[in-house]
Every structure is written in structure tokens, then in C-alpha cells.
Design a binder for these strands. Structure first.
Lengths: 197, 197, 197, 197
DNA sequence: AATGAATGAGGCTTCATTCAT
DNA sequence: CATGAATGAAGCCTCATTCAT
């Protein structure tokens, strides 16, 4: 009976959040105006401040939401150790596919969290470090070539994924599965034709 | 005495440009204030408008300058066709090294042209298309594996390079030569240890 | 409580409009500052932009308002055709008196619409053309002397009225009725004493 | 030998003055920019201040020049007293023609002196008072009908002339002689057809 | 006699945010 | 829960004017 209260409020807040995500993604932080957010949410400006303390606040909330979800996803996707090669490739492909699916699910949040947030470079750095650690582990297990720097490889893999997100996935030029397969093919075996040397 | 004709003006314009590049790179377009640009250039606000017609104008000039230079560099770096494998790798490495050197030369412009410009995604798309065409050519010559989509590979390579620029090169964690070598190693031969089959 | 819906806003807008008319009339368009308009209306600058999109906008609105009202007045004041001489003079006098009354009612708008508006000369031209057409009609009916160019007479009559507005009416040196009578006397019968020739 | 000096300077000053008159007449005082004046005069901004102390100064100089010339012209055009009717009309026509010729000679100055100058209304008032005095004199001589207020008639005549200047003369729709004749016809004998009761 | 370079002052406009209801 | 009305703060840009040469 008391829990019921606030239902309309929650809807309004959600509408504002969705509207904001859309506007931020389309125009960036500074060119997004509160007035446009509330217009899109069919509300008025003071209503905005009923649910968010400031423009920064809602932006940060969106960023935080995105990052939390992404981080959780990644933690559930850790590779099982000491697999066979085929199995490894299959798992990697599945993991990356899941990642792409996540990014495709909410393009607005993806852009906000990966591009627009002022500290996105630092966030990416963290993700990359996480990836590098995992790769290191595999490398020490003999899965990956020793002559490669896993730090740099991690940066590369992340760069590929990010670029594929914005140039292919969010432009609907391809789908998560296909992209994941291609990345893995490239990264695992390289571009060169066999028989060389 | 006679040589200085218009020299002071050119110096002022250059100082403004450098100051602007610095401010834009550090704070982004909207948070960069003309007042700060001219302060950094040791001038007053109206002086700015002696040399540039608006904030947009100088920003676009910087973007245009960056892109023109980059495009020229790339055009001089086309791979010679039909090389042997070793030679190919050497050339690719050299080309990519040159690229990294270019980006490292003016980090401010690099950030402005690749990240901050509102149409940078479209610009990247063009670069990627150019790269994809070149790769296609090589693929048809039998250099690259047929099962890979050169469109996607092009996106991947560009993504790697971009990420390496911002995560390694501009943070001085590595140098152009090293980065170029690592990218080529990874992209040409993949990560997998041999003998796995 | 329920009647006041939007009332305060309308009052503010009206206050701004009146203040603007006053300032424009006193100082002209360019020397009128938004800051002074709002000061006179007991508001702050941003409030101005709640009701008008720019300085130009409010000026044009005032001009448009004046012209619309004036045009409507003139259309209701058309002379009935084919009257006797005495009746004609009475009607003309009444019409012109109404005109003067209109101009005296809002001196600010009058100055804005007739003098300050950048296209006021063109507007006057239109009014004069309208007047000329009417005079032509009367001339063909035999009321006015054929040797006079009604185009030029129309210009003259308009010139008299305008000058009387600014030199007599708005300086309170005379009143609409008196002025109308004098104009008609002069224009109908001329200055010359009878019996001449 | 010493008088010769300054010839080039005088030319420059004259060029600036002409340019200023043109710009002021076309755009009004506030929208006229020094930068445009000197551009039109093929000079640079500091050169302007070699000859005029400020924007106001040159404007006032132009206004003063116009008014001085006009005043002189009017003083030489006083009607000879106690003429016969035909002679009076001839003289009036000639006088007014001369006036129109004066205004047509320098349209820019005319607009500046009669419309643009902020105190032009007061200046016109003076002219009108002068005219009214003359008319009074004639009226007392029995030339003009006693029932007319010469003050108001003076305003009317001035209004006609001014309107004819801007609506006919400066638009090249008529010439000084024709306009003078029409004004005199109208003002002397009125519009009404004879024989009317 | 003239110019390239620079500036002080000030106006218009925008926007996040708040008050009173 | 929501709104109409209002504001403080700040940025871009323009222009008359001057300095040094």
C-alpha cells in the first residue's frame, strides 16, 4: 500500500533518463539542453530537478549504470583456464559476441559510456588492464606467443572492438556473431596466407 | 626592417592557433573559451577576431589542417604492389611507424582531428574505406587469407592504431617503432602459438 | 485562483512591450538596449527572451501591430462615392480626424511605425498609392480638378499629415479636430484670397 | 609653396567625407561602421582619425554643412513683398524649384540632414517657423485667406516638400520644375473643381 | 601621409537552476 | 507530482578608437 506510492514518479524518472540518454548520445554533453531533455520526456524543467540534482548528476548516473553493467558482464565472461585450442576459440568468440550484444542493446548508453564521458579514456585503460592480465595468464600457459607484448595486444583488441562497435555494429552493417568471429579469426591466426616461409 | 612586413601578425595568428589547439585538446570544443585561448596567447579577445572569424572557424581550420596533412602522408605511404612477404612486412611496419610519428608530432591536433571534431566518425570511415581498398588489392594478389573480410579487417586495424595512439603513444608508454612492429606482428601472424593444430 | 492561468505571463509580456515601445521611440532601434527595456519593465534580461526571441523580433512585432491597426482603420474610412461637396468635406474631415486620433493614441508606436522602421519609406509608399487610387476615383467623378496629378497630390497630403503629426499633434500644439479641419480647408480650397483675377 | 602642402591630405579628407555621406545615407548612423567608410575611401582606419576626431564629429560636420547651405539658399529666396498675384505664383514656383534642385544635388546629405540627424525634428521646426513668419507677412498683406492658420499651413507646406523629396524627387519619379508647379497649384488654389456652389 | 596591429568597453543571447504555487 | 515564471552567471562577438612605426 505504501510501496505502491511513487509509481508515476518512477515512470517520469525513467522517461527523463531515456530522453537524456538519447539527447546526450546525439548531441554530446554540452550541447544537450535540459530544456530538450524534458521536452522529449513531455515534462517541464522543474520536474527534472525533482529526480536529478543537476545535469552532471544525470549524466554521471547514466555513465555509472553503463559501466556497472559492463563490468558485471565482463566478470561473468572470464575464460576458463587451460582449455584446448578449439575450445578456447569457441569460448572467446562467444564472449566477444556477448560483449557486442551488450553494446548493441543500448547504443545511447554505449556512446555515453565509451566516448562521451570525460574520463572514458581512464575507464578504457582499466578495461584494457583487466584484459591484459587475462592475456598474460594465457600467455604464461603457453597459449599465446611469447614474443608478443600482452599489454599492447590488449590495447589492440580493445581498439578493434571499439571501432567495430561504432563503425559496424551501431551502423547495423553487421551483427554480433559475425563480428566476433572475424575478430577472433584475425587476432588468433593473423592475416597472412599459409605456406609463407 | 623591411623583412618584417606582416611578420608580427603572422606570429600572433600562429600563437593563437597553438593556444587554441592546446585548449581544445584539453577541454573540448564547448568548454574552451576564447578568453582562455587569447590569454594563453598573451592577447586580448578582439585580437582573436583579427585572425579568425569565430570559434567554429578556428576549430575547423585546425581540423582541416590535420586532415589534409594526414591524407597527404597516407597517399605517400601506399604499399608497392606485389612484394615478397618479408619486404611487405618491412614496408608495412615502416608505414605504420611513419603514421605513429605523425600523430605523436602534434598530440593536440591528433586529438582534435580524430576525437573532438563532430564529424570525426565520418572522417574515420573514409580512412577505413581507403585502407579496405588497399587490403582488398593485396588479398586478391594472394597475400592475405581469403576467408577474412577486408572491410572488417580494415576497421580492426584502424581501431588498433587509434587505441594505441591514445593509450600508448600519447601517454609516452611506447614509441612509434615499437608500436608499429607489434601491430604488424599481431596482425600478420596472429596470437596463437605454433604447432597447435 | 483559476482565472489567473497564464495571466502573470501576459502581464509581463505587455509590460515589456510597452517598455520597448517607449525606449525605441525615445532612442531609436540601435541605441535601445535590452537591459534598459527590462529595467523599465522591472524584470531581468533572460525574462525578455521568455517572450520575444530577439531585439529584432520585438521591434518587428511592434511595427507589425502598428501597421495592421492603421491599415484596418484606413479600410473602414473609405469615402462613400458620389457625394455632394459639403458632405464630402465633412466626411474627409471626419476621416482625417480619426486618423489623427489614432496616431495620438500611441505616440511611441506612431514614431516606430512611421519613422524608425527601416522599411517605413516603402510602407508610406503603399499608403500613398492607396490614397492616390481613391483620389483618382474622385477626380474622374469630377470632384477634383483635372489639371492636378493625383499621384503628386497624394504624396502632398500624406506629407502634410505626417508633418502635422510630429510637429503639432505629438507636441500637443493642436488637436485632431482642429488639424483635420485645417488640412481640409487648405487642400480643398487653397490659400489664395478670392476675387483674385 | 607652403600652401601647396596638404593637397593629398585634402583629397583624402574629401574622399572620406563622401564615403561617409554615402554610408550614413544608406545605413543610418549606428549601422555605419568606420571600417566601411574607410574601405570605401580606400584608406585604413587610423587615417580616418587623421581628419576627423570621431564618428560623431564627421557626422556632425556633414549635418552642419547641409544645414548651412540650405539656410543660405533659403535666405536668398525670400519673396519680394507686395507682388501681384501672378508674379507671386511665379516667384513661389521658382523658389520651390530651386529648393528641390538643392535637395536633388546631394541626396546623401539631404537624407542625413533631414532624416538621420537626431535633432532633425528641431531643425525642421526652425525652418517651419521661418516659413510661417513669411506666410504671416503675406497674409497680413491680404494675399492669403485670413481664416487659415499660417502656423499650420507652414507645417503642411514643409511636409509636402519633404515627402515629395523622398517619394518623388530622390526616386527620380519627377523633376524639380514639375514638382514645384504642382505644389504651388495645389497650395494656392486647392483641389476643388470650380462652380461648385 | 598612412598603416599593421591591438585594445577597452559593452551589448546580445543562452542555459542551468530555483521560487512560488 | 508538476508547472509557470523568473533569474544569475557567463560567453561570443562587435566596434570605435589608439599605439608604434
Amino acid at each position: 500500500m505504501s510501496k505502491e506510492k511513487g509509481l508515476k514518479g518512477k515512470e517520469s524518472k525513467a522517461r527523463i533518463k531515456a530522453a537524456a540518454a538519447c539527447e546526450f548520445a546525439k548531441h554530446g554533453f554540452h550541447q544537450t539542453k535540459i530544456s530538450n531533455i524534458v521536452k522529449r520526456a513531455s515534462l517541464t524543467q522543474p520536474a527534472f530537478y525533482l529526480y536529478f540534482s543537476s545535469k552532471d548528476a544525470i549524466f554521471n548516473e547514466l555513465v555509472h549504470e553503463f559501466r556497472t553493467k559492463l563490468w558485471k558482464l565482463i566478470e561473468t565472461q572470464r575464460l576458463s583456464p587451460l582449455m584446448e585450442k578449439d575450445e578456447l576459440i569457441k569460448q572467446m568468440t562467444a564472449s566477444i559476441e556477448k560483449l557486442f550484444e551488450f553494446f548493441a542493446e543500448d547504443p545511447n548508453l554505449t556512446r555515453i559510456g565509451l566516448v562521451l564521458a570525460p574520463d572514458s579514456e581512464i575507464f578504457k585503460e582499466k578495461l584494457i588492464r583487466l584484459l591484459a592480465d587475462n592475456l598474460h595468464f594465457e600467455q604464461r600457459s603457453g597459449t599465446f606467443r611469447l614474443e608478443l607484448s600482452m599489454e599492447i595486444v590488449a590495447v589492440c583488441i580493445f581498439g578493434m572492438i571499439e571501432q567495430l562497435i561504432f563503425q559496424c555494429l551501431l551502423k547495423n552493417k553487421s551483427n554480433p556473431k559475425k563480428l566476433a568471429e572475424e575478430v577472433v579469426k584475425l587476432v588468433m591466426s593473423g592475416m597472412m596466407e599459409f605456406g609463407s616461409a
